[in-house]
Design a protein around this nucleic acid. Structure first.
Ligand code: ZN
Ligand code: ZN
Ligand code: ZN
Ligand code: ZN
Lengths: 148, 148
DNA sequence: TCATAGTTGTTACATTATAACATTTCATCC
DNA sequence: GGATGAAATGTTATAATGTAACAACTATGA
C-alpha cells in the first residue's frame, strides 16, 4: 500500500472516531498534499484540484486546509507558505521541521515538543507557549555537495 | 538616551565599521522599527514613512528591509510577516522569539542558537542547518489572565 | 417534512512581495 | 572639475498569498 494511501485511510478512521466529516473535497486536498514530495502552497493545490472542470475559488481550498489543520492531519510550514501531511496525526501536536531549501523536501522531527533549554527560557520570562513554530532551513543529506 | 536612539547609534557605528551605507531611507526604516512596541509589517512601515509627502512604493521599503536583514540589524518574524529590531546586532545571528499573540510584543531569546536535542536530531538526519526559524507563539507575562 | 447546522459556491477584495527598467546619487579616477 | 561605473532609489506593473461576506446547497435528526 502506498504511503499516501495509508495516510488517507488513517485520516478516514480518525475523522470517523472524532465525529467530523472528511468530505470528498477535504479528502482530495489531503490526498494531493500526501502525494506530493514537497510542501504545496494553497494555490498549487488549487491548480491540481480541477481535473478538466474549472478551477475552484481560493476559499474552497483554504477552508479545506483549515479543517485539516484543526484535525492535525497536516501542518503549515510558515517560512514557505506551504503545507505538508502529518505522519502521526493520532495525537495532534505542533511540528518541528527540517526544511531543505535545495530540493524542497521537509522532514518532520518527533520528540518532546520543545527542548528543555528553550522551554525554560520561555517559562522564566513568564511566557505561556501555545504554538511553537520550529523550522530549520538548510540542506538535507541528499543535497549536500550537489550543486543544485 | 532612548532605547531606539541607542539602537540607531549602534547601527550607525556598525555600518561604518563594515563599510556599508546606512542611508537616510534605511535609517528611517530602522528607526520606525525600533520605535514600535511590536513588529511592523512592510506596509505599516510604508504608511509611517510618508510624512506629508506621497507614500513610497513597496520596493522602497522592501529594499531597505533586505539591507537591514543582511546586516543583522533587524529580524523577520515569519509567522507574523513582520519585522523587529535586533538588540544585539554586533554578531549577526538567527533569532529565537517569544511572540505574544495578545499584545503583539516580541521578546528575543539569546543563548545557543539551537538547543542540543534539536540540533542533534538534525545532524543525525544528515541535515545542515543554515537558518533556524524558532518562534514561540503564546501569551506573555503581562497578558496572562487578562481578557484581552 | 421541516428545521437546523454544516458545507460549498461565488464575488470581490485585502495583504504581502517581486520583476523590470529608468533615473539619480555617490565615490573614484583622470 | 569632469568622466565613469557602481550603488541606491524611483516608478509602474504584476505576482502570490489570504480573507470577508453572502448565497446556495446538503446532510441529519426531530
Ligand atoms: Zn505532525
Ligand atoms: Zn534536499
Ligand atoms: Zn537578534
Ligand atoms: Zn502580551
Amino acid at each position: 500500500m502506498s504511503e499516501a494511501r495509508r495516510h488517507l485511510d488513517q485520516a478516514e478512521a480518525l475523522c470517523r472516531e472524532r465525529g467530523v466529516r472528511l468530505t470528498p473535497q477535504r479528502r482530495t486536498v489531503l490526498r494531493l498534499i500526501c502525494e506530493a514530495e514537497r510542501p504545496l502552497s494553497a494555490y498549487e493545490i488549487l491548480d491540481r484540484m480541477h481535473q478538466g472542470a474549472r478551477r475552484p475559488a481560493p476559499p474552497t481550498v483554504y477552508r479545506a486546509l483549515d479543517f485539516l489543520l484543526q484535525q492535525g492531519l497536516i501542518h503549515k510550514i510558515e517560512s514557505l507558505h506551504a503545507f505538508v501531511g502529518c505522519k502521526h496525526p493520532q495525537h495532534p501536536h505542533t511540528g518541528q521541521f527540517l526544511v531543505c531549501t535545495d530540493c524542497g523536501r521537509v522532514n518532520e522531527i518527533h520528540g518532546r515538543p520543545l527542548e528543555d533549554g528553550l522551554q525554560q527560557a520561555a517559562r522564566q520570562a513568564g511566557f505561556h507557549t501555545r504554538k511553537p513554530v520550529v523550522e530549520l532551513l538548510g540542506t538535507c543529506a541528499h543535497c549536500h555537495g550537489r550543486d543544485c
